[in-house]
């Protein structure tokens, strides 16, 4: 995925670039509105991350100009101003989503992915009915799961959890994100429900379970 990051604060841009790069995405960073407009004209991006407070052309103007050019690239606004008025103004100008600073990195990733998925109309995911990874196969239509040919019996939550890992192989999944995706909860849970379920899933899929590694203080990742 190609991402254009428009952010005048270098230290913010730095960790965002590193974080998104770790997800396997390529990030172009520009510090001002004019450069952003030039870059957006010269390249094709899947998502644009746009800071609102910029030197020169303001973020809202950049957004307006991009939309005036009939650009349909999803825009996610990042700003330290989180009053509802600011949010409404941003969304009315043509932004697709709005994330106030500071944000948890997980949320940024989830939103970027959501924007990307929405822009591509969920088309690619629907095609793959059977996912194979190592000795693990997951048939999404029949919900049959097998490890090395042996059928494994999983509960619904365990199936959803495994599907999440399989579709995000190599990526860090925080507990919050897992909770959100599987249990539809948004808030910090103060609970170990994720750890309990991940432990169960590891046991059930046997040797493949070792591929789910725990990242201390972050969450899990399926290699």
């Amino acid at each position: 995925m190609n991402i254009l990051l428009v952010e005048d604060e270098v230290r913010v841009a730095d960790f965002i670039r590193r974080g998104l790069g770790a997800e396997g995405w390529s990030v172009d960073h520009v510090a001002g509105g004019e450069e952003a407009l030039e870059q957006a004209k010269a390249n094709v991006y899947d998502v644009i991350l746009l800071d609102l407070m910029l030197p020169g052309i303001q973020g809202l103007d950049v957004c307006r100009k991009l939309r005036a050019r009939k650009s349909k690239t999803p825009i996610l606004m990042l700003t330290a101003l989180d009053s509802p008025e600011e949010k409404v103004k941003g969304l009315k100008t043509g932004a697709d989503d709005y994330l106030p600073k500071p944000f948890e990195f997980d949320e940024l990733i989830a939103r970027v992915e959501a924007l990307h998925r929405r822009a591509n109309c969920y088309a690619k995911e629907a095609d793959d009915t059977v996912i194979t990874s190592g000795t693990l196969t997951f048939d999404k239509s029949s919900l049959q799961i097998a490890v090395a040919g042996q059928t494994v019996d999983l509960s619904k939550k365990e199936r959803d959890l495994l599907l999440l890992f399989l579709t995000n192989q190599g990526r860090v999944l925080s507990r919050e994100r897992i909770l959100n995706a599987v249990w539809s909860m948004n808030e910090d849970p103060l609970t170990n429900v994720v750890d309990v379920y991940v432990g169960r899933l590891r046991r059930k899929i046997g040797c493949e379970g070792e591929r789910i590694v725990t990242l201390r203080n972050v969450g899990y990742r399926m290699t």
Binding site: V12, G19, K101, P102, F103, L215
Partner: peptide
Amino acid sequence: SHELRTPLAIILGEADVTLRTSADL
């Protein structure tokens, strides 16, 4: 908002990204 949130964003982001990207901590 801006003057507190931006440094907070940097602190939070740096810590978060470091934790996520560094396997050998």
